[in-house]
Design a protein around this nucleic acid. Structure first.
Lengths: 187, 187
DNA sequence: CTCCATAAACTAGGGGTTCTAGGTTTTCAC
DNA sequence: GTGAAAACCTAGAACCCCTAGTTTATGGAG
């Protein structure tokens, strides 16, 4: 029988694409194998199991988003950097709902440390560099910024804001304005 | 055979408790039936299926938290109300991780509207009443506050902040201070 | 107190999933 | 070519959800 040319990387991308279509919780090795014209047991040559594949998807999503964020923020500072960071984050979350919910998956500390998650933190710190905060304050501010962006998109994608007609994009903009104001006068 | 005295409510509470122990994603009708000394098929007399049970757990969690928030905020205004709201939210999330992740479940619009989720929004609005914001601004500010609290706890519980030694409780406090400052000078 | 209707439990089984164990075939390096 | 490793297969165990039909306990009506 002809080989399907499966690699762990291609399998992970296929899983991520499937997650964007049907939801991260709904991905299964069986469905993936069907899509690739292969028996499900064959996938164990490339991946240690469903759990392994799921963590690979979240690691992939973290890395993809970190790359996009780094590009978006490069050369910017202050409010411009903050807005570029946040809108890039938002576009990714809305365009890739499965990958985004994958990013909310808990990872064990080792793979978390080896993933692009620390880069996210560093990027937020780079954005905050323009606001001139000393070290414990910078950590607190970075957590505030990441929490707000992450939380807004979590609520937006899960429908938590849907009961009010106010446009979500402008609410997001106003929240960033308020965040910028809070950062400039942190003390 | 003796009856087990199961009701939809007791079953939902048992599922929520199980979720707090093993994680919301890991709850199963089979495990629940074993715990109650009953065959899994018997649970279909009380609940329409696993999906139904899961939405019942999120509705329960939303209602529990809304009650706690209402008590905590009663009689307070301004920064005191904001801190009471946020710390109550945080205590609930940390004490009941399964229930909290249940709250991140997407609900269909009808059950969402019938749940306590709108009450959460109203409670945030009540907190903001002390800041004197006009209507489109109040909506934006409410979304900002809810996003920040919700996002911080999502990141905290999923380990997203664990790579830095800074105490999370004080980071949370500082974020609330910054939020209060942003609300007072909303512009 | 008996009887009956209803609700709560049961048994049996289909279909789905993950994952393991072991066998076969393809591919590639030598 | 040949041998070895990797990719794929079949077969099957162990779960899980859910349906269908059956039995049993409960509580109210007569």
């Amino acid at each position: 029988m002809a080989r399907a040319g499966i690699t762990p990387e291609r399998l992970t991308v296929a899983a991520a694409d499937l997650a964007d279509e049907v939801g991260f919780e709904a991905i299964s090795l069986a469905a993936l194998a069907r899509g690739l014209g292969v028996k499900d047991a064959s996938l164990y040559s490339h991946v240690a199991g469903l759990g392994d594949l799921r963590t690979r998807v979240t690691v992939l999503a973290l890395a993809e988003l970190a790359d996009l964020l780094a590009d978006a923020v490069a050369g910017l500072a202050g409010k411009d950097a903050l807005k570029a960071f946040a809108t890039t984050y938002r576009h990714y979350a809305l365009a890739h709902p499965g990958r985004y919910t994958a990013m909310q998956q808990e990872l064990d500390p080792a793979t978390l440390a080896a993933s692009a998650a620390p880069r996210h933190g560093e990027l937020v710190r780079a954005v905050l560099r323009g606001y001139g905060l000393a070290d414990p304050d910078e950590t607190d501010a970075a957590r505030l910024v990441l929490s707000t962006v992450y939380g807004f998109l979590g609520l937006e994608t899960s429908g938590g804001f849907s009961h009010h007609p106010r446009d979500l994009g402008t609410s997001f903009e106003r929240s960033l304005d308020a965040l910028d104001h809070a950062l400039r006068s942190w003390a």
